[in-house]
Simulated assay, not measured.
Amino acid sequence: MNTIFEYLEWRGDLPVDKVPFNDVDAAILARFSYEPFDGIVPASFRQSVSVMQACHEMLNLPDLEKKVLVPKDDIRLIQLMSKSARFNKMKMSGFINDIDIERQTQFAAVVFELDGEGNYYVAYRGTDDTLIGWKEDLNMGFEFPVPGQVAALDYFESARMGLKEGTFIVGGHSKGGNLSIYASAFATCNCQDSILAIYNFDGPGFTEDLMLREQYLAIESKIHTYVPQFSVVGMILEHMEQYSVVSSNGAGIMQHELLTWEVNKDGFVCLDTVDKESRFIDHTLKDWIGSLSMEERSSFVDTVYRLLTSGDKKSVTQFGENKIGTANALLKTYSSLDDKTKRALRETFFKLVKSAGNTFTQKR
């Protein structure tokens, strides 16, 4: 199965002025936005570095393996991007990486100038390894807008003002896809007119109420949504827009990783529908979320986050570092919860089990 890595080897020598920018290119830049650009890519939209220069500086970082999501794959991606004539001359600017525990947000974005002629790609990073980033994702089930969505809109309008006049493609993976749609929908009319396309790669949807608003309807035709055959994150909330299902060589939830998606020389290898396990989870989660009040959703997310951050945990990675210590911290924190909170947590989990049973019965 051919993936983004093979695509970079096949098409890496073809600049975008020779072969037009396509959906796979958009996915590559969305995935590349996860790399550690701190101190390498300028925060200003008036200053920039090339992709090649950024890659060289990252490859020289002594602790690069600790700063990326999947060391083996990320280092290979950075190496291929540095050599690719299709990408390495693109200019990068406006990098921001903001993690705020108090505001419960994790937000990162960067701009790529595609061809030196005022055509830009605004890439919003999805959820990283931080627990606060995952909590913000869950907050979308009862809070609107979340701080990351507000930041995404501010960022896009700042980029529109700070860069020379041109056209924009906006995209992101996971939460970044959701932010791309939100920022595009609620941007001013002048900003919307400059948007050519919006990419959402396996990102959460929105509530039906939001998708019926005129702001969303104004940009709906520009949205390109892709999910893998086993999609969980991308099936959260609702999607009014059409979406394409991509073949992946990942196992289960690991298909969320863009580097596992199957490609050919011109685009993704698509299937007719997501698989039955994905549909089961989708229907179960929607039934479960629909059975909870906004107050119950908020209470459940806050309680789970409190449990997960017990023992001063701040990232998903830390759970694997001291399993016994983590388990003890979880039990200690759970024991400290008051009876009302414990009861609410049990009742919410019971509703999840009930929703799974309802879905199973309906599918028989």
Rank of each mutant, 00 (worst) to 15 (best):
V316Q: 09
G311L: 13
S298L: 04
L307F: 10
S298R: 15
V304K: 01
S299Q: 03
S298I: 01
D302W: 04
E295V: 05
R306H: 13
S315P: 06
R297H: 01
S310F: 04
D287F: 00
S298W: 01
R306I: 07
R297I: 00
D302I: 02
F319M: 09
L285V: 15
S315E: 11
K314D: 02
T309K: 14
E296K: 03
D302E: 13
E295S: 10
E295W: 02
E296N: 01
G311A: 12
T309M: 12
W288Y: 15
E296H: 01
S291M: 04
F319Q: 08
D302A: 15
Q318I: 09
L308Q: 13
W288E: 02
K314E: 04
T309S: 15
R306W: 10
S298H: 10
I289H: 05
L292Y: 03
F300P: 00
F319D: 08
F319K: 08
S293R: 08
Q318H: 04
E296Q: 11
S291G: 12
D312N: 15
G290C: 11
D312E: 14
V316G: 04
L285F: 14
V304I: 15
T303M: 05
S310H: 02
E295K: 12
S291R: 05
S298G: 13
K314G: 02
L285C: 08
R297W: 02
V304N: 01
S299N: 08
L308D: 11
R297Q: 03
M294V: 10
G290S: 11
S299A: 12
S299C: 03
F319V: 11
E295A: 11
T317Q: 14
M294A: 09
